[in-house]
């Protein structure tokens, strides 16, 4: 149990460190990146690029493993269908991301950077998630 949760804790810590080092927890940096038609800040392209390159290598290794190193089975998404729900939801997310310059991971990591602002964002985010569950009755 503890040994299984240790890699998950380490992943969370690395993730939070990477988000903060990369500038994702700074709304001005994020909105600067989204300000493509203004005073553009390309920093986040380096964040995304670095993360995607490392993960692309991991995806090459994944099929070679019979099972995960610290778990019994892989539990990975397999859907490939493009739905209005996927696109509409991503559009809503993008608008919210643009408004405040925060997405879920940085919002949670920022709880130790600016606690009150981050808590308002995270509480509203959870409320938004809950709202969808209420309206759809599923998850």
């Amino acid at each position: 149990m503890i040994s299984r949760n240790l890699p998950i804790l380490l992943s969370g810590v690395l993730f939070g460190a990477g988000l903060t080092l990369g500038g994702m927890t700074d709304p001005a940096r994020v909105r600067g990146f989204l300000n493509l038609f203004g005073d553009w800040d390309p920093t986040l392209a380096f964040v995304m690029g670095g993360a995607v390159i490392v993960m692309a290598i991991a995806w090459q290794l994944q099929p070679k493993l019979a099972r995960p190193i610290f778990a019994d089975t892989f539990a990975l998404p397999s859907r490939r269908d493009l739905t209005p729900r996927l696109i509409g939801g991503s559009a809503l997310f993008g608008i919210g991301w643009g408004v405040a310059g925060l997405c879920p991971g940085p919002g949670i990591a920022a709880l130790v950077i600016e606690p009150i602002s981050a808590a308002i964002f995270v509480a509203a985010m959870l409320a938004g998630m809950f709202l969808i569950r209420l309206t759809e009755g599923n998850a």
């Binding site: 690395l14 990369g22 995607v52 490392v54 778990a71």
Partner: peptide, 23 residues
């Protein structure tokens, strides 16, 4: 700093994938 942060995020996600089998 961006690239370094991105690599850390990538390592975190790789640890979840290869270590725990999850996204």
């Amino acid at each position: 700093a961006g690239l370094g942060g991105g690599i850390l995020i990538g390592l975190a996600a790789a640890l979840m994938l290869l270590g725990v089998g999850r996204i």
